[in-house]
Design a protein around this nucleic acid. Structure first.
Lengths: 212, 212
DNA sequence: CGATAAATTGACCGCTTGGTAAAAGCTTAC
DNA sequence: GTAAGCTTTTACCAAGCGGTCAATTTATCG
């Protein structure tokens, strides 16, 4: 047997790189559909087209796969918020943030569900990252929003709850996809629903319902 | 052994009533925290303060417990939408719907998470109920909203996505509680965050951000 | 009380699960 | 070619799982 396990190896071979990527891709499928405890190594191994011991040659434990997946997703997931620009125009910044988040819900629903699963279970693996890097990033952007409100460019509002509401409304289309499809029925559950959602959310955040 | 199992018995004894309630309460704790597959009968039995065989004397399978729990939650969960009144004033109807949903997220977070877990996993047990009763109810209320828009009482908007956005923003505070707390930090993660959320959401849905 | 039914439990079973051991193939570099 | 290390698989294990059985204890009621 090879002494330097994949996990311990510094220098990765070409095969190691490819196989690990293949495994992570398969694991994302399985974990996002069934959650951590609901998924089995056999399922992941089959989805990756290899035997279970072979899979465990590349990742020492089930948790190791999950952790790496979560880490990776967490990084890319927050990218839209990072590019949120203080120097930009409030309207277009908020608009495009909503649009980007909605596009991610459409294009990366597995990632969204993986994350939702993790949070729902109490975020046992990433609590520190939520309280650290995530909080810092949100604090920073909240200050930007607050300054826009002070300058009279947008209505005064709690920036944290604004961000929460953008997160929840957009991710809803990935995480609660089954429900959305069931309610909309066959007619409107195609890809067009994302355009409808985008129009609605833009209008909502920009103008509200303008109740008289 | 008793021939008439609890599940088969028509006439329930006092004890059966109490114990089943006790089990459902315990199961709600466990299922909402760990999901269906993540929960074990041993956990539920311990939370209910009884042995596993005893628990299985009242519910024949793990699924039976889960199904009854889901059924019950689904009914109460949609109550706020049912009382949504076509004859009422649009502004106060929408306002109080948001408030009621937010109160439910605050007062019944376990129920919200149980439901979220189920949907996230693809709603394997309740797909029919989503496509049937739920869809019908939403269709009905969507028509109400649409009529308000036609009458010029609220801005024209897609009523389905309006309902989705109310669901997602309010339930977010139950389902993503860990994240909300982590981001808000110790200062704002007390009960006061629900009042802040209520103020924000009312303002959002009524007036938007009024971007200039 | 005594009898009958209901409630409870410890022991157990078969299956699935995450993970291991060891040996057999396969690559790669000299 | 061949030796060294990398990759893959077959066979396996111990623990945890949902669920059953049979026996015991407890409640109910005449």
């Amino acid at each position: 047997m090879a002494i330097p396990r994949a996990a311990r190896t510094q220098r990765k071979t070409r095969i190691q790189e490819e196989r690990q990527e293949l495994i992570l891709e398969a694991a994302l499928d399985v974990f996002s559909a069934s959650g951590f405890r609901g998924s089995t190594l056999d399922q992941i191994a089959e989805a990756a087209g290899m035997s279970k011991p072979n899979l465990l040659y590349y990742f020492r434990t089930k948790e190791a796969i999950h952790r790496q997946l979560i880490d990776r997703v967490l990084t890319t997931w927050l990218e839209p918020l990072r590019v949120f620009d203080a120097a930009g125009d409030p309207e277009s910044e908020i608009r495009s943030y909503i649009r980007r988040k909605l596009e991610m819900a459409r294009d990366f629903p597995r990632e969204s569900r993986l994350f939702a699963n993790e949070i729902l279970q109490g975020a046992p693996h990433i609590e520190d990252e939520l309280k650290g890097p995530l909080k810092e990033l949100v604090d920073e952007k909240a200050e930007v929003i607050r300054s826009w409100a002070r300058a009279g460019k947008i209505a005064r509002c709690d920036p944290y709850h604004l961000i929460f509401s953008i997160w929840s409304t957009t991710q809803h289309y990935a995480d609660f996809d089954v429900q959305v499809r069931a309610v909309l029925g066959q007619a409107n559950s195609g890809e067009g629903r994302f355009e409808d959602a985008a129009r609605f959310l833009e209008a909502l955040f920009m103008d509200g319902l303008r109740v008289r």
